[in-house]
Amino acid sequence: MSEGTVKKFMFVNRKAPYGTIYALESLEVVLITAAFDQDVSLVFMDDGVFQLKKGQQTKGIENKNFSPTYRALDGYDIEKLYVEEEALAARGLTEDDLLVDVTVMPRAELGKLMDEMDVVLSF
């Protein structure tokens, strides 16, 4: 891998976990990107905040429960997780409902952060 070409990547997650494939696809791309030593941030906005809800049990819908994988991100050196404050509030959630440590931020702040990125991947 070539040295010195670290880019700022942001993954924007806006979909709930099981209704569509977006959340799982995003997570897989994040894990692959981690192998290339880039500066990776994850943002959870709108229904995307549901991806991080504690206590997911998917046996009944016969889907793979991929929520434990968010806990593995730390081991992949992906530590920048941002969650939209307004989205949590609109869904009756607080930081305590989330299965990983995150930074909660108003959406306008997230917009500023997004502007600074080299690459934005949208899910």
């Binding site: 894990l31 793979k64 991929f66 434990p68 994988t69 806990r71 593995a72 081991g75 992949y76």
Partner: peptide
């Protein structure tokens, strides 16, 4: 069992 994925080599080595 804990994370529902097989770790990448770099992650496995560190862990």
């Amino acid at each position: 069992n804990e994370f529902q994925i097989a770790p990448a080599v770099r992650v496995l080595t560190k862990a």
